[in-house]
Amino acid sequence: MEFCVSLAGVPVRVVHKYEHIRALCNDYLTDEEPIVTVFATDEEIEAEYKLTSGEFPLEICEGTCIHRAATRALVKYGVMLIHSAVITVDGEAFVFMAKSGVGKSTHIRLWQKVFGERAVVLNGDKPYFTFENGVLYAHGTPWRGKEFLGCNIKAPVRGMCLLHRGAENEISPATSRDAVGQIFHQVLLPQDGADMAAFMMMMDKIVRNVPMYNLYCNMEDDAARVAYNGMKGN
């Protein structure tokens, strides 16, 4: 079975075995001629199944493997995955990176509560990023994490936060060293040498051009206000 999706603006043919991935991609279907084909082999699906100790059925594992294949294939087209949660307010994207379990989803829920209809969750787990005319854009993807947060939109990135838990809410600019250390943990490194070079150039462009912050926050509404005001320069 196969279908075509537009991922971060790139038409991709997905060849698949299980229904799950087709349903997941429903909002991303396109009539455009695909320029990339991705699929997962039985061996890859089986390996993923074993890696997650059978926690997820094979059809979910196929979705994960296809995501990985798409992410690797899209590097050539200037598309990068950064494992993060992205919320937009008034059309601008705010990106939150953190170690697993710190509370990215919880934090963006606070934004929804504080900003109401002005806030739209772009993606809760695996957004893609591209540069257009020197501006970094975040793109929604079919892979939205356990809570299925996100939709098929794109938005220019206003700022990126390295999220930490704190007693008080505090935001401050992050050093290049902090930013590189954190982003490296949130990406899928390419294997091919030319892809790696392109990938590193994009990461360099992100670190040099996009404002990066350390955000220490608790789970109160004020955390969203402090983060927003800090990134808006208010």
Binding site: S176, V180, F184, L189, D192, M200, D204, R208
Partner: peptide
């Protein structure tokens, strides 16, 4: 391979070496 990202210099693995070295 060595690449520079921002003000940082990072060494990563490519090709077959990615099987042995991650990070």
């Amino acid at each position: 391979v060595l690449h520079s990202v921002g003000d940082e210099n990072v060494v990563v693995a490519i090709g077959k070496m990615t099987k042995k070295f991650r990070g």
